[in-house]
Structures are given as structure tokens and as C-alpha cells.
Design a binder for these strands. Structure first.
Lengths: 160, 160
DNA sequence: GCAATAAGGTTGTAGCTACAACCTTTTGCT
DNA sequence: AGCAAAAGGTTGTAGCTACAACCTTATTGC
């Protein structure tokens, strides 16, 4: 089985994407950690809860929306719970399930934190791209997500 | 200071990019871990060494090319050294510096591992994009890298 | 010349994630 | 009904990364 290697164009695109994968998470994490003692993933969990009805979601649904495994989410939510940012309670309809809800303190915290985070995203992503490039980026990442997560088990943000 | 929030187009592009940041590393890592007991970062270190003259680079240069901090690289190289994949030796020109060199076993290992890794990259990135999108991706990631790493301290893969 | 500072690396450790094991409740089958 | 399998979560732990502290050798300033 002979390998088809990457040509120059393919290699450049891939190397740059790999560099972004390596560097961008650190940039996001360090702003949030400095300004709010949060990781980007923790922020994202709070953001998804804040947009949900009653600021509540089942753990499984929350894991999907944050593109994470359930064990990872479980650990993160426990830490957020210890900090008074979220609370967990059993789901009435299904005794197996657990609901996670953003507390009042958590709601206050994400409202205080969001502006700085959005500014960071603008600074490094939105503002450095043209509107056309932004649309291209949505299409490109949509295609990649479709192949990385074919069954749509995780986030559905890439679905039309 | 009032915040300018993200509109729908901006939000979609960013949510999808964030999902890729979260999911793609795991896909790459698990293929390499399964087939070669390597993380993607370890593979990348080996790849950069394999393309260098004498398969040797100074730690600082290697850290730059792999978009990593020196402490992280130092730990990784130590583990690779324990496995006989790389070797370290003092740099003759500068007594402070350390050189890292890919061993014969390391060279053999990356040659054996590369086809599977390239196939994974093709499957999830290259093959799901058109040639135009690939060029767009290179430009977009280039712009992001320029803002994330303005001084060009790290990788120079984004420079024209 | 010789401190002071910078450059190049290594090491220790806290904290986060992946993976596996486990428990409980629900669903499906017959 | 009753039992097997699936769904929903949690917990334990190994391993990797970030951050800070530290050591050694070069370079700079005066």
C-alpha cells in the first residue's frame, strides 16, 4: 500500500492548521485564567448553560454541546460546583440523569467575563479575517467536523 | 467600554473553529497512540528532527518549530530519549545549548509511522476540502498565527 | 575586567484530560 | 414478569502540560 504524501500546498495548509491547534488554546486559556480563573473549556460550559432554558442542561446534552466526553465534563462540573458556579440535581423524568444548572453567582461571573473573552476572540480571529474569509472558515471547519464526528454524536454546530 | 458581540456569521465560524480545536487533537492523538504509542506532539518532534540536517536540532530551535515551550519540549525529549528514539548531547559551539538528534531507531520508527498519520490527515482534512478551500485555509490560519504570535517567536510556517 | 543581565535548559509540581472500571436505572425481548 | 443489554453518570489513576524556580554559560555595560 503506497502512501500519497502531501504536496507543498497541502503541507503548508496542514502545518499552519497544526500550529493553530497548538497555539490558540493557550492564548484563550491564559486570558481567561488571568482575568477570571477559568479555562476556556470551563468558560464554554458556563456559556452553554447560560443560553439554555432555565440555565439548565442534562450532563449528556452539555457534554455534546461542549464537544467533550462525559467523564471530562463530570470532573469539570464537580470543580465548578465546589466553586459555587454551577449546581447539580437529579433529573425528575429520568432517575439516571443529572441536571446541571448555572447558579446566580455563575450567571454573574460569566456576564462579567464575557466581554474580555469576546475581545480576545475578536482580536485573534474575527478582526484578522475578511468577511469572505470568515464565511470560508465556517465552511471549512464544517467539513472537517463532519468527518471528525460523522454520526453527529457531539456538537451539531456544523449542521446547516 | 461597551462590548461588540458576535453576530450570527461570526458566531458560527467561531463555534465551529472552537469545536475543531477541541476534537481534532484527540483524533490525531488516538490514531498515533494506537498505531505507534506516540502523541501527535511527539510525532511532530520526530518529524521536525527527521527533516533537519544530520537529523539534529538545538532544543530552542526544535521548540520553535514545534510551537512549544522549552519546558514542555524538555520533558518530551527526555521521555523519547528513555525510549531510544532521540539522543541528547551538548552543543560544541555553545556550552549552554543542547542538541537533540533522532536515533537510527527513531528514524525507522517515524518512517514506519508516517504513512498511517498522513492517511489520517488526508482523511479528515485534505480530502474533505476542495483545492480552493485548502488555499483559503492556509491564508486564514496564516493570518491567525500572525496575530497569535506577533513577534514570530514560534513557528515560521505562516511566513510567506 | 568584572559585575549584572540575558540566554539556554532542566526539574518539580499542581492541575487537567483520557481511559477504564464501576454503579444505577431504563429499555428491550420473549 | 424477568433478565440482558443499553443509557446515564461518577470515580480512580496514569500521563501530559503549564508555570515557577533554579542552574549554568554567554553577553553586555561601564
Amino acid at each position: 500500500m503506497s502512501t500519497r504524501w502531501l504536496d507543498d500546498t497541502e503541507m503548508t495548509a496542514w502545518l499552519r492548521l497544526a500550529a493553530v491547534l497548538e497555539l490558540l488554546p493557550g492564548v484563550l486559556d491564559s486570558q481567561l485564567r488571568r482575568d477570571a480563573e477559568l479555562t476556556h473549556y470551563e468558560y464554554f460550559v458556563m456559556a452553554m448553560l447560560s443560553e439554555a432554558p432555565k440555565r439548565t442542561l442534562r450532563m449528556t446534552a452539555l457534554a455534546q454541546r461542549t464537544n467533550a466526553t462525559l467523564p471530562r465534563l463530570s470532573h469539570v462540573v464537580k470543580r465548578l460546583e465546589d466553586r459555587g458556579i454551577v449546581e447539580r440535581f437529579p433529573c425528575p423524568e429520568d432517575a439516571r440523569a443529572t441536571n446541571a444548572r448555572l447558579t446566580a453567582a455563575g450567571w454573574k461571573k460569566i456576564r462579567a467575563t464575557a466581554p474580555g473573552h469576546v475581545a480576545t476572540v475578536r482580536q485573534h480571529i474575527i478582526n484578522v479575517l475578511t468577511p469572505e474569509q470568515l464565511a470560508q472558515l465556517a465552511d471549512i471547519t464544517g467539513a472537517i467536523l463532519k468527518s471528525v464526528d460523522p454520526e453527529g454524536n457531539l456538537s451539531e454546530v456544523y449542521q446547516r
